[in-house]
Amino acid sequence: MIVDVAYYIIVLVTLLSVVGFVVTKDIVRAAGLLLVVLGCVAAAFAFMNSLLLAMIQLMVYAGAVIVIFLFGVMLTRREAPTSRLRQLVCHENLTYLVFAVLLFLLILRASMGLTSPLGYIYVSPQLVATSLYVELRGVVYALAALIGASSIGAIYVVRRDKKHSDSTRGGGVQK
């Protein structure tokens, strides 16, 4: 029981950090929050008895990749530019709402009808995971594809906006 509570706390911290990572204006803090996300994912792996994977996650992603991000970020501008992406993410709360509702419905559906051997309704992470990745895997894959497509779309929007702003500034030549 304590393990499950700890697991859900980690999940909550991960979700909050993800939201913070996207909405924060300070780019170094964003990298810090990404580090929290990656650390929490490593902790989640450890909870699933996959310590080797957890340590690889910690060494490679949290330990090395973030350092490269930070080198790039700290040597350039501290403030992130106000892009179309940020406008999309920060001002269109509808996006959040839709994703939150979809996620909630999915977990609710996954949790339905799961009861413990003793009879009372109790949903453990293992049961939810089994339900999500076995019974509802089609929906999960669809959501994953949607998130992937939105990421690619966001990159496209940012590149287009950058090209547009460069051309209005006079060829994008910066001293």
Partner: peptide, 13 residues
């Protein structure tokens, strides 16, 4: 052993 070096790897950050 990986646990020890996993936490060692966080120091640069």
């Amino acid at each position: 052993l990986l646990v020890a070096f996993g936490f060692f790897a966080l120091e640069p950050l």
